[in-house]
Design a protein around this nucleic acid. Structure first.
Length: 501
DNA sequence: AAAAAAG
């Protein structure tokens, strides 16, 4: 079994890692760190929750340790799609760079330029940014990117969703050809592939996917709510009843709504009913967002009512419950949302409210997660539990979601990642891994039984899901790895195709 | 019919 100490990381980095208590790298870490340390480009295909962040911060810190930044000329650059994710990377960097003298700056929107300017002027080793604010600084002539040695793109597919790709291309163009690029995406849509073909050179490709689309630690439920969509008060009350019916088990929770308006309304109704809740969405000012999130993290706030700002990537340990006030309209978002609970091997509960007009989206979700989400009877009657199945079957025996571990040829993660770490520039031959899901998060116990050798018989393109609608019902073969096949249709399309549809 | 990010 590979240990962090086998990875050739700088001693001071290793020390910081040890202090966090982690010993065993996750598959993405074991796969990405060695080639990154050799100076190679890395293409990491991994979801959030696989330990991705450390897979680039650790080698970066190791490599940057020598040398010092000049004024306005950062030596490395990390781009993330949302402010919160950028901030999270910055925290991760702080944790692992604490025994080094490296400096960093976090450049995100919604906060004043002044402090950011001062840091840049002083010279930083690591710049962590959202694309808009970075370009803003650049255009004001405050930033020179010609000394960037390492550039990281995190959550590239989300950047694509958010229309950041032109900005990303532009930023690539501002950095030197000779830079090393570490590029991470959950899926390889054609547009993403085009970017990587253009800007990466002979990358080591590491692919890691979740073992199951949703963690087995998460107990799921749905309430089919027939109440009128016109009357928000009914739905608010239903939500509160659901929370109540969970009793003490519900220590805290995130309530996801599809619209910012509803985020505010739900938060208000909860507060009014005496529940400790605060809203978070993109219209709230940044310092407020940060404060709310911090409060939720440290337990002073019990309920976070959120838009999809908070759906992806955010690592908040110890979230006992996720409530989907609305059915998300992209099935993939469901997985991201409920993945905020059941993290790091802990148990979690995810309950969703589905109204009649959401049923189509709901069907998509059930198809994506490949299970029937247990129906929760309307509360009012006390505490119908969220998972009828639990009496008969202990949670480790849910056959439907374990297809990825069905194969022969199981290998230990260590063996597997070694293969991955060697030269794998050729896409088709890159071995794939099924990652442990939530547990992998904390780098403590990658599960060998989740690892499986993938025969490379499947044409690359079919993973993009172009034909997904037709194929879904009858071709859910075991080749599916991670969300490649489950990506929403549009993700697989080029911009031109999207305009056509 | 939405959210996010630059203002």
């Amino acid at each position: 079994m590979t240990k962090f100490s086998d990875l050739n990381l700088d001693k001071k980095v290793l020390k910081a890692v040890e202090e966090t208590g982690y010993e065993t790298p996750t598959p993405i870490q074991a796969g990405a760190i060695p080639p990154a340390l050799e100076g190679r480009d890395v293409l990491g295909i991994a979801q959030t929750g696989t330990g991705k962040t450390a897979s680039f911060t650790l080698p970066m810190i190791s490599m940057l340790k020598r040398g010092r930044a000049r004024a306005r000329m950062p030596r490395s650059l990390v781009l993330a799609p949302t402010r919160e994710l950028a901030a999270q990377v910055a925290e991760n960097f702080d944790a692992y760079a604490k025994h080094t003298k490296l400096t960093k700056a976090l450049l995100i929107g919604g906060v004043s330029f002044k402090e950011q300017d001062a840091l840049i002027d002083r010279g930083v080793d690591v710049l962590i940014a959202t694309p808009g604010r970075l370009l803003d600084h650049f255009e004001r002539g405050k930033l020179i990117l010609s000394d960037v040695k390492i550039m990281v793109i995190d959550e590239a597919d989300r950047m694509l969703d958010m229309g950041f790709i032109p900005d990303i291309e532009r930023i690539f163009g501002l950095t030197p050809f000779t830079r090393q690029t570490l590029f991470f995406s959950a899926t390889m849509a054609p547009e993403i592939e085009r970017i990587t073909n253009t800007f990466l050179s002979n990358p080591a490709k590491i692919e890691v996917a979740r073992a199951a689309t949703t963690s087995e630690n998460i107990k799921q439920g749905v309430v089919m709510f027939k109440g009128g969509a016109k009357n928000a008060a009914d739905k608010h009350r239903l939500l509160r009843d659901l929370i109540k019916s969970e009793g003490d088990e519900c220590r805290n929770g995130i309530i996801f709504c599809n619209r910012k308006i509803d985020v505010d309304a739900v938060a208000k109704s909860m507060t009014k009913a005496g529940l400790d809740a605060s809203p978070i969405h993109g219209d709230l000012d940044q310092s407020h967002r940060m404060k709310t999130l911090a409060g939720f993290r440290d337990g002073t706030l019990r309920f976070l009512v959120a838009s999809d700002v908070a759906a992806r990537g955010l690592d908040i340990p110890n979230v006992s419950h996720v409530f989907n006030y609305d059915v998300p309209s992209h099935a993939e978002d469901y997985v991201h949302r409920i993945g905020r609970t059941g993290r790091a091997g802990k148990k979690g509960t995810a309950i969703m409210i589905c109204v009649p007009r959401d049923e189509k989206n709901f069907d998509d979700i059930e198809r994506l997660v490949e299970m029937t989400i247990p129906r929760v009877e309307m509360p009012g009657a006390p505490a119908p539990k969220a998972e009828p199945k639990s009496d008969e079957a202990p949670s480790e025996e849910k056959p439907k979601r374990t297809r990825t571990r069905g194969g022969r040829g199981r290998k230990s993660d260590a063996a597997k990642t070694e293969e991955t770490a060697v030269e794998t520039p050729k896409i088709e031959d890159a071995p794939k891994q099924d990652a442990p899901n939530a547990e992998a998060e904390k780098a403590d116990a990658p599960k060998a039984e989740n690892t499986r050798q993938e025969p490379s018989d499947k044409p690359k393109r079919s993973r993009g899901g172009r034909n997904r609608g037709k194929r879904d019902n009858n071709d859910r073969g075991p080749q599916i790895v991670g969300m490649g096949d489950d990506a929403p249709d549009f993700i697989a399309k080029s911009f031109v195709e999207r305009q056509g549809s």
